[in-house]
Amino acid sequence: MEKRKQWRRLNGSIVEAAIEDEVRNVLLQAQEQGHAMKVCIGTDSQVKGGITEFATVIVFLRKGKGGFMYIHNETSQRKMAIKERMLEEVTKSIEIAYELCSLFTAFNVDMEVHADINTSPGFKSNDALKEAMGYIMGMGFVFRAKPHAFASTNCADKAVH
């Protein structure tokens, strides 16, 4: 049996339910309360010594009523070049977006995948921009890169230890 990813809320409390069930409950509650929702999914990473830590976030925005997020952290000991690490971040975001997209479709919720990749050619992460954009859009998702990728560049960035 595959080990289920451990998700937590920003306050640190652990999500006991499967993330699909948790998201379904969030969307049902938002629907009952009449909130227009939008979801942004992003991943950021940080290298410390020989370990790369990834933080993936699911950010829920209630139009005009603030937002909240769920966080999943994982580590890798594999050494990666910057481009490979950027594409690994995108892969982690796409995996959760794909896992949850049928729920977002069923509840008519807009969803974006955010990549922590700079659109300016002067930055190293820009080497992965074309591939990341093609990967995300090829999966049928809305793509956002810096400076419009707040889920990865701000939210997930704060969740990487």
Results as ranks from 00 to 15, higher is better:
A36T: 14
V160Y: 00
C40K: 04
E88T: 13
L103D: 07
L28I: 04
D110R: 03
M137Q: 15
A30R: 06
A156M: 11
R85S: 05
E22H: 10
T91Y: 13
N25E: 15
Q29G: 10
E16F: 12
R85W: 02
P147M: 07
V59W: 09
L10F: 14
A132T: 03
H148Q: 15
G66V: 10
E95W: 08
A81T: 08
G64W: 03
V59H: 11
K48Q: 14
N126W: 07
I14M: 08
I41G: 02
V26T: 14
I117D: 06
V26R: 13
G50C: 08
M139H: 14
V59M: 13
K38S: 11
L100A: 03
L100T: 01
R78M: 01
A149E: 09
G50W: 01
E112W: 13
V90H: 06
M133R: 14
K3H: 09
V39G: 03
G42M: 05
V26D: 13
M80L: 14
C155L: 04
R144V: 01
F60S: 02
I82S: 14
K48A: 15
N118Q: 12
N25W: 08
F68K: 05
G122V: 03
P121R: 09
S13G: 05
K38F: 04
M69T: 07
E20Y: 01
G140I: 00
F60K: 07
I19K: 00
T105Q: 12
S102C: 08
S93R: 07
